[in-house]
Design a protein around this nucleic acid. Structure first.
Lengths: 222, 222
DNA sequence: CCATGATATGACCAACTGGTCACATGGAGG
DNA sequence: CCTCCATGTGACCAGTTGGTCATATCATGG
């Protein structure tokens, strides 16, 4: 793991660091890795191109530094939501997590933008490692919720744990994508829904998940 | 809707057309829209750069033509799977659809690659329209399966239809992504699973969906 | 053999890319 | 005032991009 950020950058006044991180975050979130332009980052943060190379080793170095910064912000949120809902039942916790995710995306759209790029942009440096890191967070989080739900008897005790985590992850991730990416969701129209509607839809989805799709078995004395 | 392909291209011998489409498909699937290089396409299809502009108006024109080509292939598959499983019950049909999707991706990885690019590459021309078209196919397909399942009494009659379609779509799409994109799925390890394991996992997931997550209510005479 | 119109070609263009480097600036210590 | 070292700078580089165009090739029909 070679160093990507130079000490010079860390010596900079905080507001200057912030300006550069912000500019890089914007550009990478907007265009993805390869398509992002260092000239744009430099222009937006008001520094010279040469300075960028006093701060970081190369383009990949900038990206990786900004990615680490973004991940730290996300991790803080996950811990917070998890702790603040400890007493709730499983489905309420899921619902709260989903709504917290929505709020986070509205507050930090650029960080979410970077996540989406990493997901599918083949050319991101160390993509596989970054992707795995971020996916593992989500899985661990859901796993933990699920274990507690099982321990409390709120869930079918014979649930296959891994498959259930997979299912939950799929649903939650897709819900956030549907609410954020225009024209992505043609079924519920989440991309144009207000907070009220989103809340209702989230509840409804979780309720389907809770009860299952199958028709109830006919009464025994048919 | 301006013309994107010139008549000259359609006059070409079929094998030459095929070579060009194949080269373009590969390059776009690999690199996405902006990052794809016309020079590479030209080199791989063995024609001169100038010729490309005798066949298509511009880069976007090539992309849109190739996209239409790809969509036609997918649509053929959907119709086929739908028809060949008409007599099966709802969950079997879902399972068959999922496995058909897997087989399709293995057979046409480039077409699936283009789909993934469109999903998240902001810079694809007419992205919103293309995205909506492809998402609508999936939704209609699932909607149709669901309606038949309801009509046959295989599903809870009080299921919220739209939300259920959303949920199914999320799960199926994610399953295919997990099986195709390395490091994407850290829960079930689908990216390295063989056909046998994939089949088992698909069954298990659908079973969770069928039965739901909730613990069964306690017997009435508690 | 020529004329005509469609098709093929690749050198060329301006624009932009990530990255470099010789040099300017600034502030602290002697 | 000079030295020294960290920091700042933007002109510059080679490489690549999407796109153009003057010219060459080819087939057809007279």
């Amino acid at each position: 793991m070679a160093e990507t950020v130079r000490p010079t950058f860390l010596n900079l006044p905080e507001d200057k660091q912030a300006r550069i991180i912000e500019a890089a975050l914007s550009e990478f979130a907007d265009k993805g890795y390869q398509q992002a332009s260092l000239n744009v980052i430099v222009a937006h943060s008001g520094i010279a191109k040469g300075s960028l190379y006093q701060y970081f080793t190369d383009k990949a170095g900038i990206f990786l530094y900004v990615f680490d910064f973004a991940i730290a912000v996300v991790r803080r949120l996950l811990v917070q939501v998890k702790d603040s809902t400890l007493e709730e039942d499983f489905f309420t916790r899921l619902e709260r997590s989903l709504l917290a995710g929505l709020a986070f995306i509205r507050q930090h759209p650029k960080i979410y933008g970077i996540y989406l790029k990493i997901l599918f942009d083949q050319q991101v440096p160390q993509r596989q490692e970054l992707l795995q890191r971020v996916r593992q967070y989500a899985a661990d989080y859901l796993h933990s919720l699920l274990r507690q739900g099982l321990a409390r008897g709120e869930l079918r005790p014979d649930l296959p744990v891994a498959s259930t985590v997979f299912l939950l992850d799929a649903l939650l991730d897709r819900f956030l994508q549907a609410a954020s990416i225009p024209a992505f969701d043609v079924v519920l129209g989440l991309d144009q829904a207000n907070a009220q509607v989103l809340h209702t839809r989230a509840r409804e989805l979780l309720e389907v998940l809770r009860r299952g799709l199958a028709a109830p078995p006919p009464p025994a004395n048919l």
